[in-house]
Design a protein around this nucleic acid. Structure first.
Length: 863
RNA sequence: GGGCCCGUGGUCUAGCCGGUUAUGACAUCGCCUUUACACGGCGGGGGUCAUGAGUUCGAAUCUCAUCGGGCCCA
């Protein structure tokens, strides 16, 4: 059993990647004993690049999945791919040098599928390189019939429940993408614009959108505004266009904005929609689906919006309607895909009903980590005004399974047993109720969120041969998609099953570049996980993910964290190599505590305490705390102290004492391999391969042996460690080599097993009862604020002052007598001995020695 | 304009249901090849805990205000 001197991650990681049988990570659908732990993994968009933000999130998921498996859960860590969407359409157009309307619909969709398959392949490779314990037997691809038929069936089910309906309603519209979009897809950007003051017949109005004059349907004022309320009810002529519109009163009008008079258009913004619905105003569509002016715009018909705006302002000015222009800061709603300002158009679209109460109630049943992230969902819920527009005018998406009868216009929604189906390619197998067999296919497709909002249902066996396992146990996702993915998933799960989708939701932060800004191509601060693996290792990357920050907070990527991670593995390897060199002929059997030395019991006490705290932190998803604790134990306790202390035993002749050290080393190596397994799957596997049978990833998580946690032993061990460390420092300060043999080390007033100490200091140790012939001179008094404060409250300060004024020697005498008496404001006050601590200085009395004070115990070094 | 999070040595951070001397990492300086490791060991320097006020015997910690940063939304 030779252990190579160096840990070469570039050989070991590929070795295990190749050797692992990934079926060990498969979920057992027929399990009856182990509890289920299903993860509703986010399906990434297959861009072909599994980026660092994905990687951070997946590291968190993998830590949990591996930990839960080791704890005896039947874990499903599935992998999905959210394929549909505009970016792929754009990419396909770019690659093939076409526009989507130049080729037949199906051919274009085929090109999109091919591109997507290749991209998925690339991303899978990165995921394997990062060592994720993905359950590939439960992979899903939303563009494949097996998945999108579920999307279509969910559409039909919700249609039957009356939760999906078609209607003409205002929608957010992207003129560039030529499609309706949902509020969740609208992003706001601060832009400067002109506020135009117009002479509007009898009143002056202020508007930022003069190009919508043709769509003006009313003028509104605040009914409490004395300047104008007499005008309510009369009609006014719209400048340039001449049609008459009524003046209405509405409290929402801000008298302080502009002139206090606004025009209502169909539609300039969301507020217009509210007024339009509330006051039952007519509809005037002045903008078409391409963002061009319609016929009601008269001579401006066919102009693009900015062009029309310029022309109308010119004409208003020429005809004397334009009174004034002021600059105004304004937030403009933009399409999140293409940054084009959106318009609100009235369109015949499909909608899903939003039941905010049901979503809110279900969200309360879910444990949010960190908890304040739920606030974001609730804030979003509070702003919902319209239902969710689920139809899109695109190609690469799940087809809406609907036809319209050519004779009677009746809507025919496909039956579930017909799915998957593309209505543009297949006719319904039944005639319309009116007897007609000629149908017009619905060409619109579904919003991609309609696919991805049923992942929780899909992975838990919905509409499959398996038993339904909803709710899943964990939803891991970023805080940027709470208003979309989290919201829609809860909505759909409640609508379709009446159950919450998950027990808990773990929110990860965004990854920031080394400059502290969000990683983006334009800032040039993008780092790919593959780069990190190449320069360091996958395990080092994973350690950065664990230790870089706590879940929920944004995490900065720093190369130096990766460097220190890889140094930790070097150190751990060195420890492992040392341990294994002494365990060559070791056969593991249980040992009684009585057979162990103090130092062994000290280490085991610390190890079991570590297991306890690490388990708690894992349960709380505090991976940074977990790894810091493991690192601290390994480096400080095990390497810097324990190993140094036992060397003399390991190299000595006392076989019993040697065996105790070997036993302790073995147990520690075995536990460490298991504790590291969720974080460093490759390194821990390499470690474990020389310790135990089969993969470390099939082993149980260590259980703390609490009977080995012993505060007294820890105290004794700490003392030995402190003596060793003080002697080391002493030698260092005196310029002595570390292995210099001192004539004698005397320790006073305590008894203990000194064999390891003699070994590590390479010097004889003598325990001497009583005090040394030196004087302990009390020099300083330290009041114990934690005790004095609460007891004496307002008097505390006076007591502390009195204590500090008093001669330290007198206080020390008081302590030895069991009672301290001091005078405060002329009154005697009694204090218990533990209310103060006295610092003492040891004064030498004639011997040529050095005296160290270790935890209050005099240690005398005879040179 | 509203909501949420956050300001701790040069950098990043722990502590934050109040208690003495504020944690660790990286960086920096000095010393050391001791049979696991120089990708190591030992030791040192460096912080008025953003600012101001309040509560309290006592505040990095609680309250308020101000300034600054980030995110989500209108």
């Amino acid at each position: 059993m030779t252990v190579p001197k160096e840990y070469v991650s570039h050989e070991i990681e590929p070795k295990w990647k190749k050797a692992w049988d990934m079926s060990m990570y498969h979920f057992d659908w027929n399990e009856t004993t182990r509890p289920q732990y299903i993860i509703d993994t986010p399906p990434p968009y297959p861009t072909g690049n599994f980026h660092i933000g994905n990687s951070l999130n997946w590291c968190y998921i993998d830590f949990v999945a591996r930990y839960k498996r080791m704890c005896g859960y039947n874990v499903m860590f599935p992998q999905g791919w959210d394929c549909h969407g505009l970016p792929t359409e754009v990419k396909v157009e770019e690659i093939h040098g076409i526009t989507k309307n130049e080729v037949p619909r199906e051919e274009f969709r085929q090109m999109c599928r091919e591109l997507t398959r290749g991209n998925i392949e690339k991303m899978r490779e990165t995921m394997l390189n990062l060592g994720f314990s993905t359950d590939w037997s439960n992979e899903f691809v939303t563009m494949e019939p097996a998945y999108y038929s579920k999307t279509q069936r969910s559409f039909r089910k919700m249609y039957d429940m009356g939760r999906v309906y078609q209607a003409e309603h205002p929608v957010n519209w992207c003129p560039r993408c030529e499609t309706a979009i949902a509020f969740a897809e609208v992003e706001y950007e601060a832009r400067g614009t002109m506020l135009n003051f117009l002479n509007f017949d009898k009143l002056k109005i202020a508007t930022t959108r003069p190009e919508l004059l043709a769509a003006c349907v009313a003028v509104a004022i605040n009914p409490e505004d004395d300047r104008y309320n007499e005008y309510v009810g009369i009609n006014m002529k719209v400048p340039l266009f001449g049609h008459e519109v009524p003046v209405i009163g509405d409290r929402e009008v801000d008298p302080a904005f502009g002139t206090g008079v606004v025009m209502i258009c169909t539609f300039g913004d969301k507020q217009d929609v509210r007024w339009w619905m509330e006051h039952d105003l007519p509809l005037r569509k002045s903008i078409d689906r391409n963002g061009l002016m319609t016929s009601i715009a008269g001579k401006y018909e066919g102009m693009a919006i900015p062009e029309c705006k310029d022309a109308i302002i010119e004409d208003l000015r020429a005809e004397g309607y334009l009174l004034e222009q002021k600059t105004l800061d304004q937030n403009v709603g933009m399409c999140w895909r293409c940054d084009t300002p959106i318009e609100i158009l009235s369109e015949r679209q499909w909608f899903a009903k939003i039941d905010t109460d049901a979503v809110s109630k279900a969200a309360d049943e879910v444990m949010w980590l960190p908890p304040y992230m739920k606030v974001r969902l609730n804030n979003w819920i509070g702003t919902m005004e319209w239902d969710w527009c689920i139809s899109r005018q695109r190609l690469f998406a799940t087809p809406i399974p609907v036809w319209y009868c050519k004779d009677c216009d009746e809507v025919l929604v496909a039956k579930e047993e017909w799915m998957p189906i593309d209505p543009t390619r297949q006719q319904p197998p039944e005639a319309c109720g009116c007897g007609c067999t000629e149908f017009e296919a619905e060409e619109d497709v579904l919003d991609t969120w309609m696919d991805s909002s049923i992942t929780a249902l899909h992975v838990s066996g919905w509409l499959s041969d398996h038993d339904m396992k909803l709710p899943t146990q964990l939803r891991p996702q970023g805080h940027d998609i709470i208003r979309t993915w989290a919201f829609y998933t809860i909505l759909r799960s409640m609508a379709l099953t009446g159950k919450r989708p998950w027990d808990s939701i773990l929110i990860n932060g965004m990854v920031l570049g080394e400059d502290g800004h969000k990683m983006s191509k334009s800032l040039g601060n993008v780092i790919s996980p593959e780069e990190v693996i190449k320069d360091y290792s996958a395990d080092s990357f994973r350690q950065w993910a664990a230790i870089g920050g706590s879940p929920g907070s944004d995490v900065m990527f720093r190369w130096k964290d990766v460097v220190s991670a890889s140094r930790f593995f070097t150190k751990a390897w060195s420890i492992y190599r040392f341990a294994m060199s002494h365990l060559e002929d070791y056969e593991h059997t249980d040992m009684e505590v009585s057979e162990l030395k103090v130092v062994d019991r000290w280490l085991l006490s610390n190890l079991n305490r570590l297991i306890l705290s690490v388990t708690d932190s894992m349960d709380a998803y505090q991976f940074d705390e977990v790894f810091k604790a493991i690192r601290g134990f390994t480096w400080d306790v095990l390497a810097d102290n324990y190993i140094e202390l036992i060397k003399s035993r390991l190299y000595g002749d006392d076989e019993t004492a040697k065996k105790a050290a070997k036993y302790t080393l073995f147990v520690t190596m075995d536990s460490l391999a298991r504790l590291l397994a969720p974080f460093a799957p490759f390194f821990s596997e390499e470690m474990f391969s020389r310790i135990g049978e089969r993969s470390v990833h099939l082993q149980a998580w260590p259980v703390s042996r609490e009977e080995l946690i012993d505060p007294d032993i820890e105290k004794s061990g700490d003392f030995i460690k402190e003596v060793a460390s003080n002697v080391r420092r002493y030698k260092s300060e005196k310029g002595m080599a570390l292995n210099t043999s001192l004539e004698k080390i005397e320790i006073y007033g305590t008894t203990m097993d000194t064999s390891d100490l003699a070994g590590v200091t390479n010097s004889p140790i003598e325990m001497i009862e009583g005090e040394p012939d030196f004087e302990h001179v009390p020099v300083n008094v330290k009041p114990n604020m934690g005790k004095i404060g609460p007891l004496f409250r307002g008097k505390a300060k006076a007591i502390i002052d009195a204590l500090l004024d008093e001669n330290p020697k007198k206080i020390a005498d008081g302590i030895s007598k069991g009672k301290i008496v001091i005078t405060v404001d002329g009154e005697p006050v009694e204090l218990e001995p533990d209310y103060v601590e006295v610092e003492k200085e040891v004064v030498s009395a004639g011997r040529s020695v050095d005296v160290l004070d270790v935890c209050g115990v005099p240690v005398v070094i005879v040179r």
